[in-house]
Design a protein around this nucleic acid. Structure first.
Lengths: 353, 353
DNA sequence: CGAGGCTACTAATGCGCTTTAGCTCATGTC
DNA sequence: GACATGAGCTAAAGCGCATTAGTAGCCTCG
């Protein structure tokens, strides 16, 4: 008797099996099934095996809503991306990160709820709604800022979270996963200094972001150590337009730099295009370094020297930390593998004066 | 002692208000609250208003798990992206699409479950799991193929879905949203033909994908109409590497084309880089057209002529259709706005022989 | 003036699962 | 031989909501 298998198949999709079905087939109570399937004590090995077999047979999968309602977990974590629509897109960082995150989550059968919003206020609203709706067990936070309202909000909501891209903030009950931008910036500057550059401009990203601030500070410090004075940072919104614009301004200045470091791949490529447009030779007259490697840096001519980091590994690390938090693990601050500089054709010794 | 217990103890997260709380405060039964909040009849206007006020006061939000369990809806739709990790990233199409999707979903308080997997088998497995877990109410399907197992699977699961990027398939209970690639390809070829090109190569994307097939067929048809014989397509995996490789092969052939049409922005830029590397002037000796515009096409020098389409609008359309399906709307096949060609500096008359 | 019908509400049930309390029977203990 | 013990199981409650089946009160109408 399978009423839904044949005739009703057109309109009625197959009914999902429940633990009740398993219980009936295995001749035990629903509780026994629940215990067995969740690895809890209270069932003999024999019964346990039998229940597992029946569940397998029936193709049972836990109904996520029922689980979320009775247990604590929704089996979902959230990620909000707060970016104006027009800056969305070309950057490869994000999808790479997500693919790393997914790898870890999928293995644990945790789903990822994803949302794109316009700004950080909207992002906070999403967190509140998710919390109120009990939609997610925890969240991953990207693009940390220097004065960030999110950790406090999330802590007050009691929503476990992992901030991606910033070192630990004092006192907050929020894990962090980050890369050592300071050391990375030092390696970039060392590379350029070693080639003979004394005048470098850093085209940074959004001024509010924590890692932007870190990179700017670290550049200044490192320049001081090396005794360089003609070093400065300018901020942008990460877009190709502002990257190009900043490049033009910098090249038009009285003392143009011999090297430019860009905070993302898109701006670096845009900068290279500006140089090409003006007939400025790269790396002969201008060296270019991109922070974050991607296909982009390899499709330009010349190919761009880039700071490579394992972005999807970064995502994996973050996801693992979040799962650990959900399992009651302590708040931690994890450091990702140090990025390394991949020298390509866009950097070389500066032209002699 | 542990930071954990300490944090948990002091930040007792606020309890979520339930309809029971509202009922008590408003002095009515839980059912009345449920009716009022869902706009069902059976409550007077006065009571209805009072209940709404109390709910507002308490900051009540429906618990998504409870709703999913009792009602039908989980308030979630899914989107799976099946791409090998390395091809992920640079393409802007996808995030643009998602941002459009989100706009519509967010307005209706529907969440988006997102998953990245390696291949289409894994994708099907995700659909089955989501269905069994009752996690999503419907799904958006991207990258349709010419012989696609997904519509059949989704239909058999009874999971409402919208296929993005392919015209309707005969007999399937699955909505589709698509762009008229045929007309678009015709406009591209008309542009090149008008400039005087008689020898064009089309560097297409993945051979299995439906729109790749459509574009290839349409190119052939259109070439026939114009009486052109030296027209052909080669397929790739959409990556910059294969785009560059295909470009090299094509340029090395006995009769190199005077124009190349690339199926995405990344390959077009890679192709332009190959030309630059070989000292081939664009557009003097080679014209380049990119299918899909993005910042990428504007950061190269020269800027690339591109086929512009409203990708986020496309996403909005798809999301709206899915919501309509969830509301019991009919299966439809919607056509998006026709893409238009944006001529830039990478196309011009071919060099005289 | 009582039957019928309507409005505005309440009570009760169930969704699929987890969890607590309780129950039964075999085993061990002195 | 009375009794504690614990393993292995069942019964039942509850999570927050939607929904169905009432019920009380009022109006209408013949």
């Amino acid at each position: 008797m399978t009423p839904q298998s044949d005739g009703a198949a057109r309109t009625t999709p197959a009914r999902r099996p429940t633990i009740k079905d398993i219980a009936r087939r295995a001749g035990v109570s629903e509780s026994a099934v629940s215990f067995a399937l969740n690895g809890r004590p209270g069932v003999s090995q024999g019964t346990r095996d039998r229940i597992h077999r029946v569940a397998e047979d029936l193709g049972w999968q836990p109904n996520s809503a029922a689980r979320a309602l009775s247990g604590e977990r929704s089996g979902c974590v959230g990620l909000v991306l707060a970016r104006p629509a027009h800056t969305l897109g070309v950057e490869s960082f994000f999808l790479q990160l997500v693919s790393g995150v997914q790898e870890v989550l999928a293995a644990r059968k945790v789903a990822l709820l994803f949302q794109v919003v316009e700004d950080i206020e909207a992002e906070c609203a999403v967190y509140k709604r998710w919390w109120a709706e009990k939609r997610v067990d925890g969240v991953l936070v990207v693009d940390p800022r220097s004065d960030d309202p999110r950790p406090e909000l999330l802590e007050s909501l009691g929503l476990p979270s992992v901030v991606i891209g910033a070192p630990a903030e004092g006192g907050r009950q929020v894990s962090t996963v980050w890369a050592d931008d300071t050391a990375a910036m030092a390696s970039v500057l060392a590379h350029l200094h070693g080639l003979g550059h004394r005048h470098v401009v850093h085209v940074a990203g959004l001024p509010g972001l924590a890692h932007t601030e870190r990179r700017i500070t670290s550049l200044r410090t490192e320049a001081g150590r090396l005794g360089l004075t003609a070093i400065r940072s300018v901020t942008t919104d990460y877009s190709d337009a502002e990257g190009a614009e900043a490049t033009r301004r910098v090249l038009d200045s009285d003392a143009p730099p011999t090297a430019i470091v860009y905070d993302n791949d898109v701006m670096a490529v845009a900068g290279a295009a500006v140089a090409a447009e003006r007939g400025i030779k790269v790396p002969g007259e201008l060296s270019i370094v991109a922070w974050d490697d991607s296909a982009l840096c390899r499709v330009t001519h010349p190919r761009l020297t880039a700071l490579v980091r394992d972005t999807s590994g970064f995502g994996r690390l973050a996801a693992e930390e979040l799962l650990a938090r959900l399992d009651g693990g302590p708040v931690r601050s994890l450091q990702a593998e140090l990025p390394h500089l991949e020298p390509r054709e866009s950097t070389g010794p500066p032209a002699r004066r």
